[in-house]
């Protein structure tokens, strides 16, 4: 099935959860990412149990500081 991940069409296997998508999309630091699913921020505790559906729009939003090493 097809998803839109960060604005890009992405083909994934059916039944993938948000947690699994984070792995598949090679997100190295999932704790540094907030996930928006179809316009709503998804609670971190729901990543495991939320199964993605065809045409879902997913945004990974990354924590960013100021580029300093003190982050």
């Amino acid at each position: 099935m097809n998803l839109v991940v960060n604005g890009k069409e992405t083909n994934i296997t059916d039944g993938l959860t948000v947690s699994q998508l984070l792995v598949q999309e090679n997100v190295k630091m999932p704790d540094m990412v907030s996930v928006e699913l179809n316009g709503q921020i998804l609670k971190r505790t729901k990543f495991e149990e939320t199964t993605l559906k065809d045409d879902d729009k997913v945004e990974f939003i990354y924590f960013m500081g100021g580029g300093s090493v003190v982050n």
Binding site: M29, P30, D31, M32, S34, I41, R44, I61, F63, G66, G67, S68, V69, N71
Partner: peptide, 21 residues
């Protein structure tokens, strides 16, 4: 905080080698 509830856990923060700008 609508986007990020709270600061990231300490062990999740990028190490120096992954930081930089």
């Amino acid at each position: 905080r609508c986007i990020f509830n709270s600061p990231p856990p300490a062990n999740a923060v990028p190490s120096c080698s992954q930081a930089g700008v």
